[in-house]
């Protein structure tokens, strides 16, 4: 040990106590630390999701649950809307990184332009998520429970409500579907067969809330994880849009010109890219696999 202590260490490798050992400013380092802890939170949510999904064994297929697109009626376009949302978020991440790059060159006009586009992209994503949530909560047809405790879904939305179980009327165009959301072979029954099963109904439910959902009858976890994971992410997008907007106001006011650097843009950029990063994982694990 004495040999070690007598060794002289070159000053070029020593941190002299001035500046940061990571050669990164205080604010950026703190943002990274915050992002690490936030990543652990999202990691925890996704881990819990993976655990429940494998422990339960059966799970609805995302391509059957998320197959609607605004303005196309009952057309089946599996995952196209989510892909569009993903694309919007990626593009708004790109405009953010362009704002950061313009900030490095102290180009205030460009920073302003890219920040405005980033805020618009974020708002677009938020509105898409509002539509997605409202569609998910409303559901697409609902299901009946028979006297034997089996579940049958309606093929389309016929506008029934939970209260009408006793007074629901069966018409010639209606059909019931077995395993509509893909847990097992999906099978559409004929109108006569459907009528027979329909007469044995004891319960009707459509849409989703924290206690029940039509996508995975008997298991609230599916909707719960949808609400918590996309909701927590959506909350991050919301706060990201607010932060970006406030930074944009500061850019327009000229605060960073006076300060001599646009590091605040870089810090909010880190947060915004992190939101995109989380969505890449949510997209894969909640919607794709």
């Amino acid at each position: 040990m004495s040999a070690h202590s007598s060794e002289t260490i070159s000053n070029s490798v020593l941190w002299g106590g001035d500046g940061s050992p990571f050669r990164i400013s205080y604010g950026k380092l703190m943002m990274w630390l915050f992002l690490i802890s936030d990543a652990l939170t999202f990691g925890g949510l996704l881990i819990a999701y993976g655990f429940e999904r494998h422990a339960i064994g059966s799970w609805p297929l995302a391509e059957k649950v998320f197959s609607a697109f605004p303005g196309t009626g009952t057309m089946k376009l599996p995952l196209i809307y989510v892909a569009l949302m993903t694309f919007i978020l990626i593009i708004s991440s790109v405009t953010m990184v362009l704002a950061v790059e313009a900030g490095h060159r102290l180009d205030k006009k460009k920073v302003k332009k890219w920040m405005i586009l980033t805020v618009i992209g974020g708002l677009f994503f938020l509105l898409s998520q509002v539509w997605e949530w409202s569609h998910f909560i409303h559901g697409s047809g609902g299901y009946i429970t028979t006297t034997t405790g089996e579940y049958y879904h309606f093929d389309k939305d016929y506008g029934f409500h939970e209260g009408d179980v006793a007074h629901m009327e069966f018409t010639n165009e209606m059909a019931l579907v077995q395993n509509k959301y893909g847990m097992g072979e999906s099978l559409t029954l004929s109108n006569e067969e459907s009528k027979k099963i329909f007469d044995q109904r004891v319960d009707f439910f459509h849409g989703a809330n924290l206690k029940r959902n039509e996508y995975h009858p008997g298991h609230p976890q599916y909707a719960n994880f949808f609400f918590f994971i996309t909701g927590f992410h959506g909350f991050h997008v919301f706060s990201g849009v607010v932060i970006n907007f406030l930074i944009l106001l500061q850019v327009m006011k000229g605060t960073y010109d006076k300060r001599g650097h646009f590091e605040m843009v870089e810090k909010s950029g880190l947060y915004w890219h992190f939101i995109d990063l989380v969505w890449v994982f949510v997209f894969t694990f909640f919607y794709l696999v």
Partner: peptide, 19 residues
Amino acid sequence: KARYIVMSFMHLGEERKNL
């Protein structure tokens, strides 16, 4: 995708190795 977002967009690739 995650690698490119972190290393390129978040500029972690340009930071010091210890960070």
